[in-house]
């Protein structure tokens, strides 16, 4: 992979981390569209979501300052989501490369699958 794309990925990740660290503590605390609707209609819902979530409501339990707590949980979440989807995509890519070749294969596996880099998931010739 070329250096220019890594630079782009690095800058975009830095931008995402900056948003989660410096902007998220100033995000609006008002209920969102659905939460407001739930309030207005006085609907009964279960609070809190997944009971074992380590950072409920985007807060780190041990950090007392609200803004800092949100910022830290945002950074953790952003990095975790980056790692998870990068890892998943990397794994899927690996699986393709290590496909067992059929006897008599003369062309590389990547070419067989009709892969064109950056083709939005389309397969060549379809």
């Amino acid at each position: 992979m070329d250096k220019k794309t890594w630079t782009f990925v690095f800058c975009a990740l830095a931008a995402a981390l900056a948003l989660s660290a410096f902007v998220s503590p100033f995000a609006s605390q008002l209920p969102d569209g659905l939460d407001k609707f739930i309030e207005e209609q006085k609907l009964q819902v279960a609070e809190g979501g997944w009971p074992h979530a380590p950072f409920p409501d985007y807060k780190v339990g041990v950090i007392k300052s609200e803004g800092l707590s949100t910022a830290v949980s945002g950074i953790i979440g952003t990095l975790a989501v980056f790692g998870l989807s990068f890892g998943l995509a990397r794994l899927v890519f690996r699986l393709r490369r290590f496909r067992v070749p059929v006897s008599g294969d003369t062309i590389p596996i990547a070419a067989q699958s009709g892969h064109v880099p950056g083709n939005c998931g389309r397969i060549k010739g379809r």
Binding site: V9, L13, A16, F93
Partner: peptide
């Protein structure tokens, strides 16, 4: 699995 290129993995992540 059929179409993902090497370059796309970090792009998915970011």
């Amino acid at each position: 699995k059929k179409t993902l290129g090497e370059k796309e993995a970090p792009l998915l992540g970011v």
